[in-house]
Write a protein that binds this DNA or RNA. Sequence first.
DNA 1: GATCCAGACTGAATCGATTTAGAGAGGTGT
DNA 2: ACACCTCTCTAAATCGATTCAGTCTGGATC
Lengths: 351, 351
Amino acid sequence: MKPTLQAVADAVGVSRSTVSNAYARPDQLSAALRERILETARQIGYPGPDPTARSLRRGFVGAVGVLFTSQLSYAFTDPFAVRFLAGVATAAERHRTSLLLVPLPDDVAGARRAVENAAVDGFCVYCAGHESWALDAICGRGLPFVTTAPSADAGPNDRYAGIDERAAAHAAAAHVAGLGHRRVALLGDTVLPDTPAGRLRLTAVADVPHPTTRGRLAGFADAFAEVGVAWPELTVLNASANNRAAGAAAVRAALAGPTPPTAVLACSDVLALGVLDALAEAGGPPVSVTGFDDIAEAAAAGLTTVRQPAEDKGRIAAQLLLDPPADPAAGHVLLPTELVVRASTGPVPRS
Amino acid sequence: MKPTLQAVADAVGVSRSTVSNAYARPDQLSAALRERILETARQIGYPGPDPTARSLRRGFVGAVGVLFTSQLSYAFTDPFAVRFLAGVATAAERHRTSLLLVPLPDDVAGARRAVENAAVDGFCVYCAGHESWALDAICGRGLPFVTTAPSADAGPNDRYAGIDERAAAHAAAAHVAGLGHRRVALLGDTVLPDTPAGRLRLTAVADVPHPTTRGRLAGFADAFAEVGVAWPELTVLNASANNRAAGAAAVRAALAGPTPPTAVLACSDVLALGVLDALAEAGGPPVSVTGFDDIAEAAAAGLTTVRQPAEDKGRIAAQLLLDPPADPAAGHVLLPTELVVRASTGPVPRS
DNA sequence: GATCCAGACTGAATCGATTTAGAGAGGTGT
DNA sequence: ACACCTCTCTAAATCGATTCAGTCTGGATC
C-alpha cells in the first residue's frame, strides 16, 4: 500500500493540511518545516499528492480531451491530422496541460459514454462532422470546447478555429474552370453515410451531412456555376475513407467510363494523391487534379492544392480553449488559405 | 452547479448506492427502477458519474500516459514517433483506454512533477533515453510501465518492446563495409549532451549516454572492426536534433574537409535525409548514405536503411502494458529488423 | 407455521487530497 | 500593559462517487 499524505503527516507529526501546503503552497509554512516534510516524504516513499484526489478536490484536471472524427489510430495516419495535433501539442505545452486522446467506440451510445467518462477540463473537437451527440455530451457536462468549424447550432459563445471552406474550395475550382475544364468530378470521402464508393447521385449539396465536405463541394459548385456548369452536370464521387487507396478506388470507374472527367477536384490531398495513383496506373489522356490541405506529400507529387495552416489551426484551437478571449467575437478565428498551383493541373487536352 | 448523483437519488427517492448501481451494475436493481433513475437523471441534466470521483474511489483511471524523449510537439514532427503512436493508439482502442500525452518541461524537476501528477494507470515510455528520473518517478508511484528498450537497471519484471539495436546497425554497416568503404562517418543526434553539432571526439562508444544511439553506434563499429577499421579511425558526427536540417548541418563541415568520408551511416532516416540534402547541395563525388527506421520518405528518396516495425513496436508496447503476460519472459519482445538496400549506397568511387 | 432464501435496496465507511476559518505563539507600537 | 499584527499551523468540511455488509420483503419449501 502506497503511503498517503496522512502517513507523511503522522511521520512528521504535523497535520494533513500542513503537508498539503508543503506541496502546493510553500508560503504557508516555514521553509525549515517544509524541508523536513519533503525529506520525510522522500524517506517513506511518498510520491506526492495523488493526482486523482487532487483533481476531485480542486475541481479541475489539467488535461484537455481531443476528439477525432474517426478511429484514433486512423488520426495518426492522416498527415493533416498529425500536423493539427502538433499544433494542439504546442499550445498544450505552453499551458502545461496534458492531452487526453479518447478512442471512440463505433456505436454512438458507447462513444457518448466515452466522452462523458473522460477526465478532462474541456474538449478540442477535431472535426465538427461529429454528429451533435458529441457536442451534446460535452455541453451536458458543462465543459468548454472548441471546434474547427462553426457548429450548426452555434451559440454566440462557442469558439472555433477554421477556414472559409467554401471560399477556399472556390479558389481551386475557379482555377480549374479557368483552364477550360467543364467535365469535372468532385471527390469527397463519406459524402453520404453508408454509401458505396464511386459515383453518387446527389440532388443538392445541402444534403451532405459533413459540414467540411459540404462546404468544399459547395465552393467547387459555385465556381462552376459561374462559368455556366450547373450542379447536375457535375459528377460527385464518394470515397469510402479519407486515404490514398480509397481515393484511387473511388475514381477508377469514372476514369474508365465513356466520358471520363478532364479534371478531378478532391476534398483532401490524400484523396487527390489516390487519384494520381489511379491515373498513373490507368494511363490515358492527362486529367487535372486538385487536392486540399497542402500536406508535405503534395509538394513532392506536384499536386495543385489549397493550402491551409494545419499547425496554426491546432495551436489556435487549443489556445482558444485554454485561455478564452474576453471578447466572444475573438473566439471565431478564420485562418487564411492559399491556392498553390503545381503541375497536376493544366489546360484541357484537345481530343 | 451541476447535479450530482445525490441529486438524482433525492429526486427519485432512493439511496445514492442505488443510483450508482443503476450506472455501474444494472444487475443490482430491478430494470424498472433503473429505467426510472436514468430517466430522472436525464430530466435534471445529470451527465453520469463524475469521472474523477469514480477514478478516486475505484483506484484506477482508464488511461495510460505516453512519455516522449523530447518536446511533445516535436514528437508529431518525427515520422517514426508518429507511427509508434499509431500503434499505441491501436492497442488503446482495443482496450478502451485513453492516452494521456504529457508534455514535459525542460527542467528535470518540473518534468518529474509532470510525471507524478499525471492521472494514469501506467506509462508507455517511448524512449529509454529518459534519464532514470522518469522511470524512478513512475516506480515511485508504483505504476507499471513499458519501454522500447531494456532499461539499465532492468528488473526481471520490467517489460519492453524493442529491437536488437546493435545487431540491426551492424547489418547496415556490414553492407557498407562490404562495398569497400573504409573512411566513414557515423551520425547521431545528441551523441553527447551539450555538445555542438559536427565532429566529435569520442573515446569509447560506452560514453554515449543515450542507449539507442549507443547501441547503433556500437553496431556500426562492430562491422568496421571486423574489416580492420578500428574505432579511432571512424569519424563521429553529432547533430543538434533529430531532424533533417540538423542532419544536414552536422555533416556539412565533414564533407567540405580535406578527406571527406566516402560513406555516412546515420542513426535515423531523418538525419540521413538531411545528409542527402547536404550532398545534393554540395555536389562532389558520390557518398554512400544509410539511415535507420525506414520511414515513408526513405523509400521515395532511395535511402538504404534498416527497417523496423514502427506500428508494431507501439502496439506491442501498449499491449504489454495493458495486459501483462503471465510469464515475465514474455514481457521482453524483440522485433525483427531488416536491411533495405536502395540506391543511396554503392561502391567506393575510384579517386 | 416456521424456516430459509433470493432479490431489491440502503447505510456508512472510504478513496486521498484541498481549503476556509480560526487558534495559538511571538513580536511591535504606544 | 494592552491592543493589534503577523506567522505558523490545525480542525473539519468537502469534492462525488463506490462498495461491503446488512436489512427488509415476499415467496417457496418442508
